[in-house]
């Protein structure tokens, strides 16, 4: 939760694209941790596999979205440099 709040703060208050991206990933990390923690069902029962599977899916999507954003950002920078 703290990670999520820090991520939002950083996302809104920094101008640089790279910082925004990192902040966004920190936010995502916060959400993933909450999901993993929610899977806890007491000491005896095994953890709930459904949130774990969702987090696994989310990590891969986050990585690919970050890669796309980085490529777009680099491209925008190039275009700005040419002007």
């Amino acid at each position: 939760m703290i990670l999520f709040a820090l991520g939002i703060w950083s996302f809104l208050s920094h101008e640089a694209l790279l910082r925004k991206l990192i902040a966004f990933n920190v936010m995502g990390g916060g959400v993933f941790h909450v999901f993993i923690a929610v899977a806890y069902r007491g000491d005896t029962a095994p953890p709930d596999p459904v949130p774990h599977a969702l987090v696994l899916t989310g990590i891969v999507v986050a990585v690919s979205a970050t890669a796309l954003a980085l490529a777009l950002g680099g491209r925008a920078q190039d275009a700005a440099d040419h002007d």
């Binding site: 596999p49 459904v50 774990h52 599977a53 969702l54 696994l56 899916t57 891969v60 999507v61 690919s64 979205a65 890669a67 796309l68 490529a71 777009l72």
Partner: peptide, 27 residues
């Protein structure tokens, strides 16, 4: 976890692979 990903919620995983593919196509 694997049975949830690949069997019970296989739709999710299929669409996730599509998202990854879309990101690569964008790049």
């Amino acid at each position: 976890v694997t049975s949830v990903l690949l069997n019970f919620r296989a739709y999710d995983t299929l669409l996730e692979l599509a998202v990854v593919l879309a990101a690569l196509l964008g790049i």
